[in-house]
Design a protein around this nucleic acid. Structure first.
Length: 703
DNA sequence: GCGTGACATTTTTTT
DNA sequence: AATGTCACGC
């Protein structure tokens, strides 16, 4: 009898879904139905009675993916999915630590530090230890600490051979001590703590190992060393691990993701049980041909080639613009044309390597009146007014939190300046107490502040979450502060939105305590971006586009130094990651793909000249369609792009022009000086670097 | 204690 | 170009 769950799957997908009770690695290419396989596997396991929801642990990297997974499973199964653990690594670690806080050595109300909180905690530490922040930059220290935590190393495990690394290790140690004292945990700490908890506590470990008979991991290529060890710890002798990933889409190595985990997993758990999903249901043939040709240039990969049952489709359009503004206007024209032909704006995406590139594009779109939406940027719970409000709340439930204390002690300003705070910190440090405790014994303005917090605590004792937050906003003076500020309307609205978010949270969450809400705020920085229904062009970085798909995709800024980014282009591994990034970008497109680059571009306030990205040359010519400059009328002198800076009269050359030199190859003129017989030009060559050449002697020809 | 202007600093991002 | 950080002066 046919099973409705499995009917629409292809043979490989079906094999993956119905694997026996053993660990396996699923190599799922872009657009091959990865999420579908993962969710169907869970549904199938439960429906066929192989496991109860209680025995399932499913891990993802983003909250969005976790939510999507739950929704899809719920749609497939009539039964209730409660009891299943589905969430992000951090969310699950938090859940574990909240349940076993005593065993984990944390206070019950421990607070979570996001990256920003962590950085300010580190700055505070460096200051208290009188460390030279020129030599030990806070950001570097943060990177050092997180790097070690993500590799599963405590300060004592960090190798310290010279003065510098010994100092760093000491700072790491001191930082952890500070966090412990204040009862806070940063993101990697959540994982490491949860890991250590199970590692050291055998009964607990056995409990979870027996409970979770099936562990499923999404985006496995993004796991770091600690997350992998974490999974190994959860897996008992009778646990089946189901890891789904695509090494070609690993684009987070820069933050510790380790594709090597896939190889290791194959050896340690899957024992050769590897299923490749290579049929792509998303893109037309030419797009896949390009993607395959590109990614084949990478050495380090497990090897996989996408194919489609669809036809070749349209060629990939390549456009060379004079400059970034020209590129933007090209994009605008094409977007409008596509929309006229019936493609919704929301089904088109405009991708770029780095956020700074969006400005010019936005300007052009705005001027042309095209609705667009930029993803990324400041998230809801990261806004300063929200952080202030949350800091008050943190202080209510967890007064030991010095970070929260410092954020609000003088915001809104109440006449407590740096000097006073410093004295307070001295008192606290001498007695080993928290700032809050020191404040409670203080007098004057500090005492008034302490009474304010105490007052809020008493007044909100019986209130709901939303009422509490509303009360905090009004009593703390935050509300008045932003009402007095003529630019404070948006912030007030956000604070109001925070109250709404709390009300919603109370409705939905099983545990609607203040602590739970604060953890939620830290772990889920807020995908609550407003105005969904509107049909708008989608703008985002390539990173942000992972996992999404669009009818038409524009990849812009395909220039050396930008994409691949110059910071990554030096070593082979960096370059391979950039290539994977390009692979991800290409495979977002279903039907139509545009690649564009510009001869010159405004970057960091000055004009830069770049060559076309090497990635363009790595695509097969057969699938590319170089676009001619648009209609002759638009090329009329009046509308010509503003690149024509004459390079000395009568020389026949101008800045921005491509030229060829017998010895140095081709390059672009980026500057000139003198005129007539003395004229010299500065040319940036692809291979030979930048050279000054005298026009009278150098044999240049237009290229 | 607080506000302002000079200064540097620019990848990618989730949790 | 634009943004954040820091030191200085009121």
């Amino acid at each position: 009898m046919s099973d409705p769950l499995l009917d629409s799957l292809n043979p490989e997908q079906r094999a993956a879904v119905t694997l026996p009770h053993a660990s396996a690695l699923i190599l799922a290419g872009a657009g091959s139905g990865k999420t579908r396989v993962l969710t169907t596997r869970i549904a199938w396991l439960i429906q066929t009675g192989r496991v109860s929801p209680h025995g399932i642990l499913a891990v993802t990297f983003t909250n969005k993916a976790a939510k999507e997974m739950l929704t899809r499973i719920a749609a497939m199964l009539p039964i209730n999915t409660r009891g299943m653990w589905v969430g992000t690594f951090h969310g699950l670690a938090n859940r574990l630590l909240r349940t076993h806080w005593r065993e984990a050595g944390l206070p019950q109300s421990f607070q979570i530090l996001d990256a920003q909180d962590q950085l300010s905690a580190i700055k505070r530490l460096l200051k208290s230890l009188n460390i030279d922040t020129e030599k030990y930059e806070p950001k570097k220290v943060q990177g050092y600490i997180n790097g070690h935590k993500e590799a599963g190393r405590r300060a004592r495990d960090a190798d310290a051979h010279d003065e510098y690394s010994m100092q760093l290790a000491e700072l790491y140690e001191a930082y952890d001590a500070q966090c412990q004292r204040e009862g806070v945990a940063d993101f990697p700490e959540l994982l490491l703590r949860a890991y250590e908890l199970l590692y050291r506590n055998e009964p607990l470990r056995q409990h979870y190992q027996t409970r979770f008979r099936h562990i499923l991991i999404d985006e496995f290529q993004d796991t770091n060393a600690l997350q992998y060890r974490w999974l190994k710890l959860f897996a008992g002798p009778d646990t089946a691990l189901f890891a789904v990933g695509d090494d070609d889409q690993s684009i987070y190595a820069f933050r510790g993701a380790n594709t090597g985990n896939m190889l290791e997993f194959e050896r340690e758990f899957a024992h050769g049980r590897v299923i490749k999903l290579e049929q792509n249901y998303r893109s037309h043939g030419n797009i896949l041909t390009a993607a395959n040709a590109l990614i084949e240039r990478n050495e380090r990969r497990l090897g996989k080639s996408l194919w489609t049952a669809e036809g070749d489709g349209e060629p990939i359009r390549v456009f060379e613009a004079f400059d970034d503004r020209d590129e933007a206007s090209f994009v605008v024209d094409e977007v409008k044309a596509l929309n006229r032909e019936g493609t919704a704006f929301s089904d088109m995406a405009l991708l770029y390597r780095s956020n700074a590139q969006s400005r010019v594009l936005e300007h052009a779109l705005f001027t042309a009146g095209v609705a667009y939406r930029v993803y990324g940027g400041l998230r809801f719970f990261e806004r300063q007014e929200i952080r202030h409000a949350l800091a008050y709340l943190r202080l209510l439930t967890h007064p030991e939190d010095d970070g929260a204390f410092l954020r609000v002690i003088n915001f809104p300003t109440r006449g407590i300046g740096a000097r006073t705070v410093e004295q307070l910190a001295d008192v606290a440090a001498r007695s080993g107490a928290s700032l809050w405790q020191a404040a409670c014994t203080a007098s004057g303005k500090v005492a008034t502040f302490a009474r304010l917090i105490e007052g809020i605590k008493t007044a909100t004792a019986g209130l709901t979450l939303a009422e509490t937050i509303d009360h905090v906003i009004e009593t703390s003076g935050l509300g008045d502060h932003y009402r007095a500020d003529k630019d404070g309307a948006d912030r007030l609205e956000n604070l109001n939105e925070l109250v709404n978010a709390a009300a919603l949270f109370s409705e939905e969450a099983e545990d609607d305590t203040l602590d739970a809400f604060l953890a939620h705020a830290a772990l889920e920085a807020g995908e609550h971006q407003a105005e969904p229904g509107r049909d708008a062009l989608q703008l985002m970085t390539v990173h942000a586009a992972k996992g999404l798909e669009f009818h038409a995709v524009f990849i812009t800024g395909l220039e050396e130094g930008l994409f691949p980014h110059e910071q990554s282009a030096h070593d082979e591994s960096g370059l391979e990651e950039e290539r994977r990034l390009m692979y991800v970008a290409i495979t977002r497109a279903r039907r139509r793909l545009y690649l564009s680059h510009a001869q010159s571009r405004m970057l960091h306030g000055q004009v830069r000249y770049g060559f076309a990205s090497r990635f363009l040359a790595e695509l097969p010519d057969a699938v590319l369609l170089p676009l001619n400059r648009r209609g002759a009328s638009r090329d009329a002198p009046a509308a010509a792009p503003p690149r024509a800076t004459p390079a000395g009269h009568g020389t026949g050359y101008r800045v921005g022009q491509c030229v060829a030199h017998a010895k140095f190859g081709t390059g672009i003129i980026i500057d000139f000086e003198g005129g007539g017989p003395d004229a010299r030009v500065q040319v940036k060559f692809g291979d030979a670097g930048t050279k000054w050449l005298a026009l009278a002697y150098a044999k240049l020809s237009p290229a």
